[in-house]
Structure formats: C-alpha cells, structure tokens
Amino acid sequence: MLVFYTAFGIAIFISLLDRVTAGSSAAKTVAPIRSQVVPVPKKVKDILQKYFTFYQQLPANKQAFFARKVCAFIYAKRFIPRSVDAVTIECKVLIAASAVQLTMGLPNIYLQHFTRILVYPNDYYSGITRRYHKGEVNPRFGIIVLSWQSFIDGYINPTDSLNLGLHEMAHALRLENIIRNDEYNFFDATQLATFDAYAKDICRNMNNGTQPFFRAYACTDEHEFFAVAVENFFERPRQFQETWPDLYAVLSKLLNQDPLTLFAVTPA
C-alpha cells in the first residue's frame, strides 16, 4: 500500500509539474526538479548510447548525471521546427546533449535565458544578413538556431574542430554569463579576463604570420574565439593542451572540466 501511495504521489507531482511547465518561464525553473523526480526515459538513454560518443565514454555514474541533465534541458526548452513538420526525439536529445557536454562541469547551468531552439533541416537563409547560416544565437529573443544537417556533420568527424552544436552552445553559454537571471555571473571574472588576454595575444601573433592552431575565424572577436576554443577543447584536447597549455588550463577552469581526464573512473 505504501508503494501505491508513493507512486500515486509521484504521479500527481509529475502532473503538477507538467501544468506548471506549460509556460516557458516556469519550465526553465522547474525542469531541473522534474529531471530529478521523473526517471530518465529509456529512449533517451538509448539515443545517447547509440549516437553520442562523449556519453558513451563516460563512467556509469557520470552517464547518469549526463542523462538527467539532458532531460532537464529538454523539459526547459521549446524545440520549434522550421521547414520540417516536427523536431524528432533524436534531434532533441542530441541537441540537448551538445549543451550538456559543454556544461558538464557546471551542474546548475542550463542556459536558462535561451528557452527556444529553432531547428532547420539544412542551412537557412537570413533576410537580415541576406546570406545562408548554419546556426546562430539571438540573446534578445532567447533563441538558439541550428541547421540539423550541419549539427550532425559536426559530430561525424570528432577531431576536425568544426562542431556547430558546441560552437553555438558556447556562444549561448558566454552570453548567459552576462544576462541577469538565476544563472548570472557564474564564470570567474579573473579567469575570463585572463582567457580574453590570451586570445588577444594569440590573434596578434596570428596576424604576424605565426602558424595558427585555431582557424582564422576565431579572431573575429572574443565571442568567436571562445566558441572556436571550445570546439578545439573537446575535439583536439591533447593538441590544444600541448600547443597552448596556459589557455587550455584557463578554459578547463572556466568550464570546470578537462576532457583529458573526464572519462577516468573515479575510485569508490
């Protein structure tokens, strides 16, 4: 009987959560709670295990945390299809996984400000810039926009340091840090300033003809450098650490994780 009442109580609580999360502003607050109460659906774990290499390499305890955070991200966002009928569950899980890969070491960060994820099947045309885009982040409207094909392409080759999901989530993460909400100012200001100082120095040397480690696009501004650095951090961590050890160490501190040690099993 106790089991029945416990299950019944959880069911009522989940129902209430669903009602509360009908509005996006409430959803972003309740989602982390819901992800702790509601078991991770088997479908979500199956998708991660089949398609997401980063998740596959994690030890079991970190996989459980990762999957819960993926669910919290999904619960808190509206996935809006563009030029397609619907956003599939595979699409939602993998996009959420790219955000969680980046925020694995920031357990209380869910990119709260960005409540809508627009998904196009391919690169899309912008009437504002009058050119095609693979993705973008719009802080004014709390939107992350992604081309699904370009997103997938970013994970097909895991070592080329071209990953649309990580790139756009990195933009959202850096912007989230300066938006006044519950997730405001989570980066250590001194570490972030140190990162930007390294970036300026690297770009100055690149302009002087030094062989670059980062692609030239990184030097557009500090936001693009951060996004490109994140791509390299996850896709070429060993080369990154050997080429720019101080910058790598600072980024590791900002993200509170290190891909070179993350997959090790923690002793009991």
Rank of each mutant, 00 (worst) to 15 (best):
T115I: 07
I14M: 03
I10L: 13
D46N: 11
S126Y: 08
Q63I: 06
F4Q: 13
K134D: 15
T103P: 10
Y55V: 04
L48V: 08
T261C: 08
S252Q: 08
D246K: 01
Y120H: 11
Q241N: 03
L58T: 06
F66G: 04
Q257D: 08
L94E: 05
A27W: 02
N177K: 09
Q149I: 03
V265K: 12
F214M: 05
K134Q: 14
F234I: 02
K43M: 10
G23L: 15
G154W: 02
L173H: 07
Y132H: 07
S24R: 10
N207M: 15
A249K: 05
F52W: 11
D201K: 14
R238T: 11
A170D: 02
P107R: 06
F65V: 14
T243A: 04
K92Y: 10
V3I: 14
R174P: 09
A76L: 01
R130T: 11
F225I: 07
E183G: 08
G154T: 05
D188K: 06
R140A: 14
A27R: 02
A199Q: 01
I33V: 12
G23V: 15
Q257R: 05
A26M: 11
L192K: 14
V44W: 06
T103S: 06
I144L: 01
M1L: 12
A189T: 14
F73S: 04
H223D: 15
L111I: 07
A7Q: 15
L251Q: 03
N181K: 08
I95F: 04
L16S: 03
V20T: 05
A172D: 05
A99V: 10
L102P: 01
E224C: 03
A218D: 08
T261N: 02
P158A: 08
Q211N: 14
F73K: 03
P81A: 10
F66C: 02
E224Q: 02
Y198T: 03
I152K: 04
Q101T: 10
N138G: 03
F225P: 03
Q56K: 10
R82V: 14
R130L: 14
P121T: 02
G165Q: 01
M169D: 02
L254V: 01
N177Q: 11
T21A: 12
A249W: 00
A27D: 07
F66L: 05
P59L: 07
Y5E: 09
E90P: 05
T190C: 12
P259G: 01
S147C: 07
P107I: 02
